[in-house]
Write a protein that binds this DNA or RNA. Sequence first.
DNA 1: ACCTCCAGTGTAAGCGCTTACATTTGAATC
DNA 2: GATTCAAATGTAAGCGCTTACACTGGAGGT
Lengths: 340, 340
Amino acid sequence: MSDLRTVPTLDDVARAAGVSTATVSRCLNSPERVVEQTRKRVMAAVEALGYTPNFGARVMAAKRTFTIGAIIPTMENAIFARGLQAFQEELHTRGYTLLVASSAYQPKIEEEQIRSLVARGADGLLLIGHDRDPSVYQYLKARSIPVLSAWVYLPESGQPTVGFDNRQSMRALAQQVIDFGHQKIAVISGITKGNDRAAARLAGLRDALAANGLDPKTMPVVETPYEIENGAVAFQTLMCAENRPTVVMCGNDVLAVGALRGARDMGLSVPEDVSITGFDDIELARIVTPQITTVHVPHREMGRKAAIALIDMVEKRGTGDTIELKSTVQLRDSLRDLTR
Amino acid sequence: MSDLRTVPTLDDVARAAGVSTATVSRCLNSPERVVEQTRKRVMAAVEALGYTPNFGARVMAAKRTFTIGAIIPTMENAIFARGLQAFQEELHTRGYTLLVASSAYQPKIEEEQIRSLVARGADGLLLIGHDRDPSVYQYLKARSIPVLSAWVYLPESGQPTVGFDNRQSMRALAQQVIDFGHQKIAVISGITKGNDRAAARLAGLRDALAANGLDPKTMPVVETPYEIENGAVAFQTLMCAENRPTVVMCGNDVLAVGALRGARDMGLSVPEDVSITGFDDIELARIVTPQITTVHVPHREMGRKAAIALIDMVEKRGTGDTIELKSTVQLRDSLRDLTR
DNA sequence: ACCTCCAGTGTAAGCGCTTACATTTGAATC
DNA sequence: GATTCAAATGTAAGCGCTTACACTGGAGGT
């Protein structure tokens, strides 16, 4: 029958085991420094009282929290889920805990979340992308909190990043599309403001056009938040314009799936009437009919490597590497080869 | 030029503003108790120093953290995403922060996460389902941490739950299936052990069969983790048995989408050759072709109500309501009406 | 027998904050 | 001008933990 009114503290355990608080603390944090017999006694008391260390107190007294914070733009679609899961798994095997918050793609909320996680003692932070107010990085630097930007590869930024080159990747896909004989390309992009991934992908698209003697300026572009519904709407907008495109390239798979639905709603068949491409290669891309041509991104590997790199930074084993992952064009049914 | 080597504390702010630490604290926590002029001076100092309260210290000194913890089985698929997003939004408008952890459907990890969140001072906890070791509830009770179980409605459990009746919901869907003339029903269920939602859904299925003079014992069932790939495999297993079912009912939409893919791979068309049903009505169900007949669950509403109920428990020390939400059968193309 | 040394343990000083209680201030009242 | 009293602010005691440092006793060296 334990006391229901109060939570046991280190003191209680110490008293119950007949040792000092220091010994109890050592049993918990560096067991090898306590002789077996004592340790057993202490552990028994811990067990008997159902003691759990108070995290706040621990953070205050020590410095480390073995907590990593991650802030992702959204939990609602699967873009970040897989990578984050891998990130979490790797952290877990290394004894760290992951705290996740989502910013709903809003810089203000993201800053709030950053402060919140830092205040909670996060040893390090994983952020998505790199495009944010410099004051954020200053703030983090002043507190010497290591930050790693993922989902992007920006060696020139001077900050550690783990990811792939969004611009090059999209350019490669666009090159493939052009090689297939497409000249009239329309684009459904994510909101580029405050989202360097979306911006880079759009830039890559323009690169490809320019490199092939096409005028990027004439390319129709709709920017819209990453949501299926928006993809459908944007698609219809683009297809209703004069001079219909032969292919609609989307900033990510979610938009592409939306475009696909837009096509279905308009009674257009893909890829016979119009081709559609995506980006990310989330599960969705292989589930829909037709399956979507997209850029495959090694999400799990990115998550794992991000975890390793960030822990290295936290534990001072490195200043933070910049790691590039390779993406690959994933050809599937939604893209038609017009040359055949 | 600020000192990069040390993080400003309440003391620093107090000194900079020429007041005591108590006044600074009051400015931050109950501004109305400080006269305007002083408050301005303090806030200016806070701004100038870039001060952020140390969360650990705050937790220790006060009791409240305005943090709610949630542990979900997985982040990898969308089942919980929407509800959780709504949960988070509602918390945010009420001044609470959400900390999310995932348990990978493993009770051991879930317990670990619970302890971790409690140690971090979570004022309340949201858990998915209700089926877990009693010691967990004891632990939480001993610390008077309110817990709310969501995604289930269990008035008889004596614990607050916010959700729908999984058993009844599935039974209703099965009734519809039977009314459409299906007699040979096969099932792809989630792992029922340690997952009361999956178990209840399966039970609801059996209820419906029994109520219609069908023998639940002869119903083929495959249990498999909630993943698309598994759905495909399970589907093929079921369809290769003798006495093919006319309908494969799945424990959730993810499995149903997998089954759909399984059918495609086998060259079967849905619903002509075989019908498929899901559960949850996540976005996925409407994206695939054919769209999946499923049970619609008001995820966002559930999330919102869960937030409100949990905060009530935290603030009012009330015992917590049990709230039932209504699910509805959502007929779509993947289910064939054999009577016509 | 004496000294060293060290593994094992205890003592106690904070970590940065909130808040009960004490003190000061100044406007209002007599 | 003296008195009263509420509002504004200050003082200081913890919250539960880690860890530098102090202490103890026994093994090993001389």
